[in-house]
Each structure stands twice: as structure tokens, then as C-alpha cells.
Design a protein around this nucleic acid. Sequence first.
RNA 1: GCCCCUGUAGUUCAACGGAUAGAACACCGGCCUUCUAAGCCGGAUACGUAGGUUCGACUCCUACCGGGGGUACCA
Length: 551
Amino acid sequence: MREIKEKLAKVLSEKLKVEVKPEDFTEPPRNVEADLALACFNFVKELKQKPNEIAERIASDLENAEAEGPYVNFLIDSNALAQSVLNEKVSKKEEKKEKIMVEFAHPNTHKAFHIGHLRNIITGESVCRILDNVGHHVTRANYQGDVGLHIAKALWGIDQLRDEYEKIKKQDLDKRIEFLGKTYALGGQTFEKDDKVKEAVFELNEKIYNKDKSIQDVYKTTRGWSLEYFDKVYQRVDANFDRFYFESEVFEKGRETVLKFLKKDVFKKSQGAIIFEGEKYGLHSRVFINSKGFPTYEAKDLALAEMQYKEFKPDRIIHVVGKEQTEYFKVVFKAMEQVFPKLTGKEEHLDYGWVSLKSGKMSSRTGKVVLGEWLLDEIEKRIAVIMKKSTVKDKDLIVKKVAIAAVKYAMLKIGVKVDMAFDIEESVNTSGDSGPYLLYIVARIKSILRKSKVKSQKSKVVKINEHEKVLLLKLAKFEEAQAEAAKQLDPSEIAKYLFELAQEFNSFYHQCPVLQAEDDVQAFRIRLIQKVEQVMTVGLNLLGIETVDEM
RNA sequence: GCCCCUGUAGUUCAACGGAUAGAACACCGGCCUUCUAAGCCGGAUACGUAGGUUCGACUCCUACCGGGGGUACCA
């Protein structure tokens, strides 16, 4: 498609003596029977002609072009289109490569893992694949919070439930995680209400930072539970990481860095704490070292950035973090410019939208959260019911894959930055704009390919009908979708594209029989659906979704 | 208070300055002796309000109204 536009743009540029760019072409509206359109308004100034006249001029001696008011509509030759679409590789990586670090997941140990985390991981994983796919060198980082007040709250909670803790130690992971969630909630709630408890939690926090021996055993044990659990979740949703960072490995360095730059007046003492004055830059001030002398998240992020840069020398570092931290990152990046000038312009915050529940709000304080694993289990159960009568091989595995596809697609089809009201009923839906709908296309194609005895042939020229052409045109647009997704860091561009492709395919499927067609036509259609299957598989993979042969 | 984001069918989302604002779910009606009916075909309904910029605005600007987030010692 890119080549077609470039070629056409060149012809028109020469003709008009005005630069026409490939991206000037748009998609004609549905009621217009054309494949490509050009609006002529932008050439009015240079050509000193009315748009309608320009359109006429362009169309006048051009085949396959027709002026309609200020627009020119172009028809693309079907056979040429088929040639280019069917012979091109589905995914071609560009030459110029950037080194990009994508930091995502970053869960906190000792805390519940809810569907907001799920969106983060699913989004991060997909963004990595999308960037890698267009030729970047991607490093996947995961920065896990294993020190800080949240841990102190959990440890306080454990202290209250000591007997239970001793018993639960010997039980399976799910039980231990459930217990950990309970102690965190208990600690968190009591912390708010009771000042004495507040003090006790602060003391515990100090002990964590000081690696106090009295808590090491329980700290390390429970930290281990969390990490074991995270691993299990990562595996389940097929998220991969190259480097795990921990707050515990950067906090000391963070403190040193802030103290060092305090002397250089980058930071300032204020009310016993050390802050960065964001007001100077139209932002707000933030505490980097608190009045007890402990580094906050801000200070740790400075040290983390330095470490990441030293280890990988990335051109970009993308932090996939919820949008409630937008202002936070602005301040930290501003401080970073002064502390590590090399990182200026390299740090980015990819702020994805909220996940709320359609039925009421989700809140970790009140304990009203939907746990990530619970959601996955629930969806698996429902898919299993749908597949109850199915006789496919490896049914259990297919149920799992379809369930993951359902969740991932439900979360990725919405624009990254858009808040989503997560509806369990809808995410489980296996019809319409859903993961299973897309997997179904692939299963259908594979089924046809298994049954076909005609081999796909390259050279035969056949008469291409409108259904086939529509499909070819859609296939030709995959490249643009990939580029757009990478540019915007938005998997929904891919999701949208795949759904449209799937719709076109289903339309074709019902209109154009493959196995009943004559040999030449059949050979062409086989090639066509093979291409659809390839694009679908590559595209779904960019979303982190595996296809299935049957369902 | 100040700063940022946001408002599109009953619901969840598209439309990235261009031609009659698209889907999906839900609802109603058709289509399986023919490649998987988790499918296809047909059907009603929407741009928060008021201005402005532009040949042209869902898209950019301003005000108002509604929703969310942030705003110093959490992460």
C-alpha cells in the first residue's frame, strides 16, 4: 500500500508541479466506490485554483481516477494489488534501530494483584512486541517494589496474625498469597485509624530500610511468596522480562544521589525533608528524601534511571505506569535532567487509562478489588462451558488460550490512554468484537487448508471479485497499522485493524467458497486466505495472543 | 483553590482538520443436507451546552456544566 501511494504521489507531483505526499491520500467514505482518495484543498494556495478545478485537472487524463467535487477518487488495479499483497512479506523490520527499554508490570510485593496490574502487563508486553516488530531493539524491564511503607503495613498485619502465619507457611502458594493480601488490608486499614499503629508501621518501615535482623526472616519469606506468585502470573499471561530491578537495590544509591546534588542546589531542604522545587518549572514540589532520612520513590527512580542507562544505554526508556502518576513523572524527569543530563528527552511515561468496574468502583482500601487471577479463572470456566461439547484435541489447552485471548483483547482493543469500565460479562463475551472471534477466523482458515487438495500457485491470473479485492485492500493496510501502533505506543491500533480484517474475512468466507471453486480460482483463494492467516497470526502475536488450530 | 485528563447511540468503544459520525453488545427478523452458526445478512437510536478559528470542526481555541486524577514526606 505504501508503494502504491508513493508511486501515485510521484505521478501527481510531477503533473501538478506541487509536492503531493503519500500520506495525503485518505480512505474514501463507504458510499464512494473507490480505493483511495485525495482532497485537493491543500493545493489551492500554491496552484491558485479552486479545489474542484484541481480535482478535474488531476482526473482528466488519468486512468482509474475520477473527480468528485474537490476530491479525486482512485481505483487500484486488482491484479497489481494481489501481486504486491500476496508476494510481500507480512512483517519486515526496518533498518534503523533504536534501543528502547520498556519498563512495565512493576508490582509491589506483599500487595494484591488486581486487574489494573493485568492491564499494565498486557499493555507492556504488547508494546514491547510492537516495537520489536518494527525493528527496534527492546529490553524489557520490571521494577518491583520490595521496600517501603506498603511492606511495613503487611508486616504489621502478619504480626497480629502470628499463629495463622506459622500455619499458612506450609500451605500452597494461593493460600499464602491470600493470607498476604489479608494482612496488607488489615495493616492498611488500621494504619489509617490508629495513630499508635501508624507509629509502629513507621518503625517497621525503618527496620526494612535498615535491614534489621529482627524482621529479616519474615520479610524475606513473604517477599519470596510474592515473587513466586508474580512469576506464575507472568507465565500465565506470557509476559517476559530481561531484567528485574528491585527498589531494595536502588534506594541507597538514590539517597546518595540526592544528597550529592543537594550540595549543588538541585535539591533543597524544606521542613526537615529534601525536596525538588517543581514550581520553578510550572510543576509542583516533591519530596525526594523524607524527614526521617529515607529516600522516597522519587529518589529511587533517579538511581534506577542511572543504573538502567549504564547497563543498556537505551535511546528511550518507556515507563508503563498508570496515568495518576503523570504529574509525578514530570517532576522526576525534570529533576533527572539536572542530575543526569544524558537522560534528557529519553525518559517517557506511557500513561495507560484506569480500569474500573462497570458495577461500582474498585478500591484496594475497602478491599473491593477484582484480582487478576480470579478474572482469568472465571473466564476460563466460561469458555470451558462453551466448549463442553467440542471434540477438539487438547481441549484444556485450547480453553486456556482462548481465555487469555479474551482477556488480552478486551484490554487492548481500547485506546491505551482511555479509561475502561471493565465489564466481566462483556470481556467473557465470545462473539462480536472479541478475542475468540479473531481466533475463530484462524481456526476456520486452518480447517479449510487442511481439507484442500489444490496447491497454491503463484503465476495464475484470475479475475478478482469485489469480496476478494476488499480483503486484499485490508491486507495491504497491515503495514500502516503496525507503524501507527509503534508510533503511538498503542496496541489498540493493531486490535482495531485485526477486527476489521476478521470482519472482511468472514464476509468473504460466506460469499466465496474455496473448496468448491475451480482449480485456478481455488488456488488463488488458498493463497489469499493463507495471507489472511499469516497477518492474523502475526497481528495477534503483537497483542501477545497465541492462535489455535481448532476451536 | 491551582494543575492535568475526560464528556459520541441504552451500554462499551471508533472516527487523529475533510465527502452521509462507524462498530460491538443488548433488542427484533432472516440464513446450517454446502469449507467450523464462537458465523453471516437485514433493522432503530448519539457528537454535554454556548461561542470562536477554518473553504471545512467529534477533532483546534474560549467559557460554562458534568466525570476522573494530581496537588510534600505512599508507591
